[in-house]
Design a protein around this nucleic acid. Structure first.
Lengths: 332, 332
DNA sequence: TTGAAAGCGATACCAG
DNA sequence: CTGGTATCGCTTTCAA
């Protein structure tokens, strides 16, 4: 099945290429009979329009870059999945770009895809990406940002951190907890910063002590927090801890477990994200769920709106609670 | 910064487009002085060759599709990550395609990327993909398969299941275990089939009873196996179980935990994959590690060899053991 | 070493 | 409604 071009179809159908072109891109502008014939010929020849040639001529393609720092993190995996679906429904092809958190990579991908006439891009920024710098690179002004606080002139979709933290704290207080600590993830991440601020604000408001077990990135955060926990006198230990995100919660539980601390008997642990994985952890993770699927679809919508109206909207979604097995009544 | 074309550079540098083209693609074929000037002009103009136009003309691009059933699964996430790196090092752009395990999707992606002149593709096939059918679609004959048994005429890179299972069983027997069960994952998956066969073969050889807690896909497998476990009389229960892959192991541990079974005190559990995540689980997962990073790099190499020599090589890699905390001496 | 010209596969505007 | 023509941005003989 050699590659068929538009001219092959045209010849076989006895019409001009431009007619074939129309038969595909503006069907109503061509005589039904002719169109029918063209379509049949195309079908029988196994013809497909060349997206490359099409993009070159139209100066716009259906390639949409999704830029994430680390696809190994299930959060981005879930995001990518829903995004791919949402994109496909609108005829876009998602191109996943993994940056390792490096700004240079982000920019490189953006310019590369600009060169491929990507109509817009979605970025789930890591710590270091500066939104304003983003705008300076090609395609940078046609980007929507996911999971990151707004402020900038770029459309964003995020989840309400304050609401999420409030949900978590309420749940915990309902179980009798009063000493509720917080473990931050990568401290430079905007969402974790945001969530941390929400926690501090709420603690102040409720007049409960803010206990922050801050730490480095990834599993280290959990490790260090666990260390701190066991080195704290019994009566001063928090009875519950909220992790900045599910992955940190997993790491924390793991480290706590390795030190013989049992969850939720000795301490309750909550996450934030609502990863599918939380239903397969030990114990199953109680967490604040972000509506990841909605985020994906909305991001695509926002992008299209940006193209049409030039409007940079900010959508902030409401999280909800996923109560599973990592939280329990405060031990007495 | 409007888009600059090759002609803009040519005009500004006072040469013909063809010379500019050469300056980039065959630098040695152009006068050093001229080249220097062209490069400077290009630089100052912010010119970049259009990959689209280039691909259209050359009939080959640098886009490489990686086709996975489910990017939510960290195994594919890790694969994608190493693959992206390996690809980038050779100047390719990885395009991640998520199929949800559907053959139609796989074929659709393959043809779409064929249309973009992808030089080859990498597929991590789900259950249902038929390698021979694969070859019939466009690009299908320039595909390398990862994590799937060979047989077919397609290059493959896999890990030695028998060796992996042997590693696991040895480890467990060394800890005194004799009743070692096996939990299969999605039973249609080739690797899990392969691993299951390896387990059965080894059990027969060692004359230990083969206890197969087979079950459905994903978390159900763990759930059902756990159910079966607790419904078995104490003295007949396996003292250790090997899961077809890490995700099944996590699910199993989770379900066992939910039923009050403690690991590794009451039963040892091993995984197979060596996911990073296993170091953050509770307890940390003892597992057979696949050299995922190598698999990525090798897959790209195999693809390039396939293009050059037309040779479809099969590489099978050796797994190793990652001893963490989910296995312990048999309780007595 | 460089320039000229043809063409990759499509689209879009202009006539008819 | 259909055909002709120019063009998107680049590569690649072929001559000079």
């Amino acid at each position: 099945m050699a590659e068929m071009s538009i001219d092959d179809v045209a010849a076989r159908a006895g019409v001009h290429r431009s007619t074939v072109s129309r038969a595909f891109s503006r069907p109503e502008a061509v005589n039904p009979t002719t169109r029918q014939r063209i379509l049949e010929v195309a079908e029988s020849l196994g013809y497909q329009v060349s997206p490359l040639a099409q993009a070159l001529r139209r100066k716009t393609s259906n390639l949409v870059p999704l830029i994430v720092p680390d696809i190994t993190n299930p959060f981005y995996g879930e995001l990518a999945k829903t995004m791919a679906t949402a994109a496909a429904e609108k005829g876009y092809q998602l191109v996943l770009c993994v940056t390792g958190g490096e700004v240079a990579q982000t920019n490189a991908y953006l310019t590369a895809l600009q060169g491929m006439y990507a109509p817009f891009g979605i970025v789930a920024p890591s710590t270091s990406v500066d939104l304003d710098e983003l705008r300076s690179v090609a395609l940078g002004s046609r980007v929507v940002v996911v999971d990151r606080v707004d402020k900038a002139q770029v459309p964003t979709v995020t989840v309400d951190s304050a609401e999420g933290i409030a949900l978590a704290v309420d749940h915990l207080r309902g179980l009798g907890h009063r000493r509720i600590a917080y473990v931050s993830g990568i401290s430079g991440t905007y969402t974790s910063r945001d969530r941390l601020a929400a926690y501090e604000g709420l603690a102040a408001k409720l007049e409960i002590p803010a206990m922050i077990l801050d730490a480095g990135a990834g599993s280290e955060a959990g490790e260090r927090a666990a260390e701190l926990f066991v080195n704290t006198a019994y009566e001063e230990r928090p009875t519950a801890v909220i992790a900045a995100n599910d992955m940190v919660a997993f790491a924390l539980i793991s480290s706590l477990g390795a030190r013989g601390v049992s969850i939720p008997d000795e301490v309750s642990v909550m996450g934030f994200d609502g990863l599918e994985l939380g239903s397969r952890s030990n114990p199953r993770l109680t967490t604040v769920r972000q509506p990841i699927a909605d985020m994906g679809a909305i991001a695509i919508d926002l992008a299209e709106q940006l193209l049409n109206d030039g409007e940079a909207q900010h959508v902030v979604l409401a999280p909800d609670l996923l109560i599973r097995a990592s939280t329990a009544e405060v031990p007495r």
